[in-house]
Structure formats: C-alpha cells, structure tokens
Amino acid sequence: MDSTAIKNFAAQIRYYTLKELNYMGYGHYGGSLSIVETLAVLYGNQLQVSPETKDDLNRDFFVLSKGHAGPALYATLFLKGYISEDWLYTLNQNGTNLPSHPDKNKTPGVDMTTGSLGQGISAATGIAYGNKIAGRENYTYCIVGDGELNEGQCWEAIQFAAHRQLDHFVLFIDDNKKQLDGYTTEICNPFDFEAKFAAFGFHTLKADGSSVEEINEAIERAKSLTDKPIAIVLDTVKGQGVPFIEDMYSNHHLRLDDAAKAAIEATTEKIGIEIGVR
C-alpha cells in the first residue's frame, strides 16, 4: 500500500475499534487507539501473513504484548479477512471469540495469548529465537506498552534477545506517556527509552507513532540492520485520533456516561463519513 492507502486503512481500524468499544459501552480506549497507525503499517505493508498463511511457520509473527489493546487488533483482523464484522460486537461478552485480551485459541490470526503484562514480550522473544534456530528468515514483531516496561520480566527478555542477536525481532514501544493510573514519569520514570535499549544491546530507532510514513520508514530501516534486535520507540498519544479522549487525564479504561458516549460517537460518525462507512 502507498501512504494514502495506509492512512485510510488506519482510519478504518480506528473506526471499527471505536464501534466495538462504543457498542460495549466501556473498555480500553486509550491504549487501543495509540497503536492504530502501527497496526495499519504492519498489516497493510509489512507483515508477511494472510488468513491463508496464518499457520505457515515461515510467515511473519506478531505479538501484542500490551494485550488490553486487543480491540484495535480485532478491528485490524476483521479488515484483513480473518474474522467477520459481527464478531466485533461480541467483544468481551460471554461466549465470545474476542475476549478483552487476545487469546490464540479463540481468535484466528492471534499468534500469542497476552494480557498479563510483561509476558507477551517474553513469548515473542521465544518465537524469534525458535525461528532463528530453525533457520527461518521471517520476522517477529511485538508491541509493548511504556507502562508495561515497569515489569522486570520485560528486561529479562530484552537482555536475552540482545544476547542471542535476534536481528529478525522488531520491538515497538508504544510511548503514549500514560499507564493505568497516570503518567509514566510520575509512577515510575522510564527516562530515555532509546538510551536504555541501546544500553541493553538493541539497535534503537524512533518514529512519530501517528505518522504511517515514519513508522514504515523505521521498519524498513530495521530490516537493513544486522546482529542485534531492533527497538522502535513510537512517540504516541493515549487516545490518539480522538481529541475528546486525548484530552482526558484518565483515559486507560473508560466507562461511558451519556455525555462521553455522545462525544465519542460523534467522532466515530465523522471518521465513518470520511472513509465512506456509516
């Protein structure tokens, strides 16, 4: 896809992410919205996988370590033909195939069950290492949250990935500056992610997480690097693309009152008109 097509794909992902969350009336809006552009670039331009090849060991793998952003992944999987639209409106309901956090045993296209923060990155590192041992040239991509990096398990996996020189492992840090109960700098200051990952033995890159062009360029650059895993620090905003949510201090998990629902649904409708869906 060219950048215009990817931007449109991102708008579609944002629209359907909002639709499924609005239908439920509550959920993880903030962190789902901040990874929309990254998902659009991955599934629109970079990930070598399709519904037909989702079980092929030579495909690229993707692990959403920050599993609470599952709604954005589900919207993406619907748009790529893995699941049907009606599944979206069963999000987190009894008997659903789309639980609040991704489950590889329930949802086609999900490579790893995640949600217990810190564990997804370990699983992704294991996948990348297994592929390297098997001599495969496919890539493993993983998105980790900035607040999630409070977990010590993440840094054990990061150190392991560097030690094993997993240069087909690309880790995105969704640096949206917030976690469940406030700003990351107030709760446990992460300091400089680029410097930290470089110190741990990664190639480090940075991209505007709202720019599909910068994200795509960073991935292309990552693929040209060797001998080390790659960390791409994404400068994002929690609630990205929905000003009403961006402006909220506490926007990790929302339960919508009538005013909030009306405001968010207005943005949803606006995006729907822009992409030709109502």
Rank of each mutant, 00 (worst) to 15 (best):
D258F: 06
L47I: 13
G201Y: 05
A11W: 07
T17S: 14
E85N: 09
H163N: 15
A207P: 07
G95D: 09
V63T: 14
L39M: 11
D2W: 08
V233H: 05
G95H: 13
K261H: 13
V49F: 00
D175E: 07
I158M: 04
S116N: 12
A231Y: 09
P108C: 05
L91F: 15
R14F: 06
V170E: 00
M24G: 00
E246M: 08
L47E: 03
F191D: 14
E265K: 09
P190C: 06
G135D: 05
M248L: 15
A134T: 08
Y89Q: 07
I187F: 11
T76A: 04
S65K: 13
Q240H: 08
I271K: 10
R221K: 15
E186W: 07
K261Y: 13
A123W: 05
A260H: 03
Q240N: 09
V233R: 08
Y15K: 06
T114V: 07
I158S: 07
L180F: 15
K7A: 10
I230V: 15
A195L: 13
G109S: 09
Y26I: 04
T204L: 04
S100Q: 14
A40Q: 04
N150S: 12
A199T: 02
D181V: 03
G152R: 00
W87P: 02
E194Y: 08
Y249T: 09
Q153A: 10
L234T: 01
E186H: 11
Y129P: 01
Y139G: 11
A75D: 02
T96D: 10
Y139L: 11
D103I: 00
N176V: 03
L166T: 05
S116L: 13
L33P: 06
L256Q: 05
A231W: 05
R221F: 00
N97R: 05
H252Y: 10
I215Q: 03
I245D: 08
N8Q: 12
L39Q: 10
Y183V: 00
Y139W: 11
D258Q: 13
Y82K: 03
L166F: 07
S122L: 10
F193H: 09
G44F: 04
T114I: 11
I13F: 03
T96E: 10
M112N: 01
D167N: 13
A10D: 11
G118S: 08
F169G: 00
V242D: 06
Q46R: 13
K104E: 13
K106I: 00
G145P: 09
